[in-house]
Design a protein around this nucleic acid. Structure first.
Length: 583
RNA sequence: CUACCCGUGGCACAGCUGGAUAGCGCGUCAGACUCCGACUCUGAAGGCCGUAGGUUCAAAUCCUAUCGGGUAGGCCA
């Protein structure tokens, strides 16, 4: 399948060499040079000839004129030179026929260039911390990460989605102490992760109180807490394989996971691996030894570090003064394991931009260690989220749990759908798809690097550029097709501007998918969906479809609707949106 | 102090591998449709693209400086 640009570039390359007898400009180069004019009245595609003027030693105006002179082919109804631009007007019927034909022929593969066939990509995303709240701060990594996985799968990659759970560390010592002191098994079984969080918050407060008291008593002595000591001791026992503590730890993890699964299910997310931090504890020493053997490790103030001065970065800490490991150590060990296990062509890490330095550092360390695959590591950062203008803070209670966010969204939608759908089950199903979709669409509308101020009212709005708007449009196409009873057929009828705009928009999809993947940017798809929905709604408004008198025109319009329906479906799924046929 | 990210109409955002009159949504005002689904569509008002220099035939887009906001920076993750 060829996109308009590729097809045009191929024709142009021939044209240029036959007119100027020069092979200076290749088709690939021309694809990059071609652009869409700001106004379609100028043309559907344009080649600015300014950059060619140096190599062809002629003025842009002359070049455009020479190329336009007698340039005829069936693809274009006209090729004209305007102020140094070579403007192409597409032959509408042939073009529409080809585009819609591609959509019908390729079905749910339309838009994919299959550029990832035979390659493997590992995606590390979502990764919540066990026994800590799963809140909207995790929405970015979860939704962007999964969307990137879907996009890569669509392009033919073998994908491994990894939920790198925060399931190890001193917080488990604290949790064990807290549970033994105040915990209630049945309460946790009933209340789930919320109860664990309560225990965790309580012990942290008590430890802080003890420390403050110790300072008040003797300002010169270091801060101290008996509970803190107990927590460290329990974690040590856990590390040493104490059965009782291990059992508790497993239980805490499974209770937390159970809760997260509910949210994942709403979003349609499944992971291929849940290997968390705990899995890598025994894989770190080998990497530390390798660093030491290679002479990369330096002692600094008792800690083991890798000096990164040469690369204008602060040192990367590998071991604490007491010899215990750190975050970068674990990430390096995990990357090595994943390369050995999956042989990835790309490993993508979706985390907050706040961690950019951390990733830059350990990526560099991996390179220094001589691992040839260091350049396959990709950090995909995203901006931070605030709520109503205020920063997220567990302590002050300024958090919105993901499950509460989705519950709220769903119940608001349910109030509206209830009138239309008396069947409670159907009503809830639709409310779920639309409510969750509204939040996801809102989040994925922006450039991922932009900081988001999360305003519930806006996220759940139904007007304008929103999830409900595009899902509604999709449902409308479904309804039209159902009433039509067929998927139509492209006939040789003249197309209006509105119809052509829709066809051009459909034709753009493959480019957008490629761009979204190249930039690791799901919002490219989100905005494309908006364009497509708008183009369809204009078409829908201007043209009678089912009620069209002319049979061959009616069939054509139904086919256009079917193509739109197909692409909307594919595109929505790429950004973790459900596609309800009725709303 | 150093590094990275962001700074586009009242609000929230596209456009940034330089290219033809800077786009979309919300809000405001005025219309159309009320039909294939409660929706949607059309038009108007509103921007010296943070500021100042520079490169170029051409700068919202590249470079430099500067201001404002955010994030990170050795024993947390």
């Amino acid at each position: 399948m060829l996109t308009i640009k590729k097809k045009t570039a191929a024709l142009l390359a021939d044209r240029i060499s036959s007119v100027f007898g020069s092979d200076l400009v290749g088709a690939d180069e021309l694809v990059r040079m071609l652009e869409y004019p700001p106004d379609s009245s100028m043309g559907d595609l344009a080649l600015p000839c300014f950059r060619l003027s140096k190599s062809l030693r002629r003025s842009p105006v002359q070049i455009a004129a020479s190329l336009a002179e007698g340039f005829e082919c069936e693809e274009f109804s006209s090729v004209t030179a305007v102020n140094g631009y070579l403007n192409f007007k597409i032959n509408p019927t042939a073009f529409a026929r080809r585009v819609v034909g591609d959509v019908f022929r390729l079905g749910d593969k339309y838009g994919s260039s299959q550029s990832g066939v035979g390659k493997t990509v590992v995606l590390d995303y979502s990764s919540p911390n066990v026994a800590k709240p799963f809140h909207i701060g995790h929405l970015g990594t979860t939704v962007i990460g999964h969307s990137l996985k879907l996009i890569h799968q669509f392009e033919g990659y073998d994908c491994v989605g990894i939920n790198y759970l925060g399931d190890w560390g001193t917080q488990f010592g604290k949790l064990i102490v807290a549970y033994k002191l105040w915990g209630d098994k049945q309460q946790i079984e009933r209340g789930g992760v919320d109860e664990l969080v309560k225990l965790y918050v309580r012990i942290n407060n008590e430890i802080k109180a003890e420390e403050d008291a110790s300072v008040a008593e003797n300002p010169d002595a270091p801060r101290h807490s008996a509970l803190g000591d107990a927590a460290r001791a329990e974690f040590k026992r856990l590390e040493d394989g104490d059965e009782e503590n291990l059992a508790l730890w497993r239980w805490f993890v499974s209770v937390s996971l159970e809760e997260y699964q509910k949210t994942y299910k709403l979003l349609g997310i499944e992971f291929d691996s849940y290997k968390g931090e705990s899995f890598y504890t025994d894989k770190m020493p080998a990497q530390v030894q390798k660093l030491r053997d290679m002479g990369l490790l330096e002692l600094d103030d008792g800690a083991s570090i890798v000096n990164l001065d040469k690369w204008n970065m602060p040192v990367c800490l590998i071991l604490k003064r007491d010899g215990s490991t750190l975050y970068p150590t674990r990430d390096i060990a995990a990357a090595v394991y994943r390369q050995e296990t999956y042989g990835f062509d790309k490993a993508i890490y979706v985390t907050s931009a706040a961690q950019s330095l951390h990733f830059a550092q350990w990526f560099k360390v991996v390179e220094l260690m001589g691992y040839g695959w260091y350049d396959r590591l990709v950090h995909v950062p995203y901006g931070t989220v605030s709520i109503n203008g205020a920063k997220l803070a567990t302590r002050t209670g300024n958090v919105i749990l993901l499950k509460d966010l989705f519950d709220e969204a769903i119940s608001r939608v349910a109030e509206i759908t209830r009138e239309k759908h008396p069947d409670p089950e159907e009503c809830m199903r639709i409310a779920e798809q639309v409510g969750v979709g509204a939040v996801v669409f809102y989040y994925l509308s922006n450039n991922r690097m932009r900081d988001i101020n999360f305003v519930m009212e806006e996220a759940l709005s139904f007007d304008g550029n929103t999830g409900p708007y595009v899902q509604y449009t999709y449902a409308r196409t479904c309804s039209v097709l159902e009433r039509a009873g067929s998927t139509g057929k492209m006939n040789d009828v003249p197309l209006t501007d509105g119809e052509m705009e829709l066809v051009k928009c459909v034709a753009l999809f493959p480019e957008k998918v490629a761009q979204a993947m190249a930039e690791y940017e799901p919002s490219v798809i989100t905005r494309y969906i908006l364009d497509l929905a708008a183009a369809f709604n204009r078409f829908y408004h201007d043209c009678k479809i089912i009620g069209c008198e002319d049979e061959s025109l009616r069939e054509t319009r139904i086919a256009l609707t079917a193509a739109t329906n197909r692409v909307l479906h594919t595109a929505l799924e790429l950004i973790c949106m459900k596609t309800p046929e009725k709303i």
